[in-house]
């Protein structure tokens, strides 16, 4: 019944434990938020799920298939897409080419170049970058880079999307636009979403379920309202001076 499931995931770097026996599950079509103070292990968990790191212990299942030992590109072809905390579009490629790379990398190839072009333009339009097709990605501003990265991830035809701090560095208006984009993503592409957010804000309104990490361990899980009242969560966040 889980779309994506992690069992007992542990990971340490040179003696420092980043994740300790973390369990999580995400259902088809769900939007799940992953929150926690700085250094809680959120991005590490994402990197383990996306195949950048191998977990020291534990397994990851996608549609009940064990995908623990697959590489990033294999996981992507299985349907896991991601964005990065600091956006990483290909700086020396144009926006259109950025998306084209995703389309070329797909398992099911499109052979006709016109079809490919049409497909790529569809995703550019989805994130309102259709006027920037021939602009090099390095010339975009932060919000445009983030949108381009979302489009690039979407263009891989994912089943599930890992979003790492989409709202970081955005002002209120921009956050509202981003929320609209997220909702359209759910409605138009029916994508299951797993999100990291550092600050308990907008994510509490959108996510259906929240998982809280602290010091590499899962300390709470449940509906946003329940999590926000959980004393363990409050304590973890009180220790974090950034909030």
């Amino acid at each position: 019944m889980w779309k994506l499931k992690g069992e007992n995931i542990s990971k340490s770097f040179g003696g420092v434990t980043a994740l300790k026996e973390v369990n999580f599950g995400i259902k088809e079509g769900e939007i799940v938020g992953l929150i926690g103070p700085n250094g809680a292990g959120k991005t590490t968990l994402f990197n383990v799920v996306a195949g950048v790191y191998r977990p020291d212990k534990g397994s990851i299942y996608l549609d009940d298939e064990n995908v623990t030992n697959l590489n990033s590109h294999q996981l992507c072809r299985k349907g896991i897409a991601r964005t990065f905390q600091i956006p990483r579009p290909f700086p020396e490629l144009t926006c259109l080419e950025n998306i084209m790379v995703s389309i070329i990398g797909r398992e099911e190839k499109i052979h006709n170049s016109n079809e490919k072009l049409k497909e790529a333009k569809k995703f550019l339009k989805f994130v309102d970058l259709d006027n920037y097709g021939n602009i090099l990605a390095k010339n975009l501003n932060l919000i445009q880079k983030k949108r381009l990265e979302v489009a690039r991830a979407l263009a891989t035809n994912p089943k599930i999307m890992l979003l790492d701090e989409v709202f970081a560095g955005l002002n209120n208006t921009e956050i509202r636009d981003a929320v609209k984009l997220i909702e359209r993503m759910k409605n138009e592409f029916e994508i299951t979403q797993f999100w990291i957010e550092h600050v308990m804000g907008v994510i509490m309104e959108i996510a259906e379920r929240i998982i809280v990490l602290d010091n590499g361990e899962k300390i709470s899980e449940g509906k946003p309202i329940e999590v926000a009242r959980d004393p363990k969560v409050i304590e973890a966040y009180l220790g974090d001076t950034d909030v």
Binding site: F84, E92, E97, E107, R152
Partner: peptide
């Protein structure tokens, strides 16, 4: 060609390229 685009994506950012399905 599409191969060339793959080459350039790897040159630009290996991690990002593998995250979108390119076998770097």
């Amino acid at each position: 060609s599409d191969h060339g685009l793959k080459f350039k994506s790897v040159l630009n950012d290996e991690l990002a390229a593998s995250s979108i399905g390119i076998d770097t």
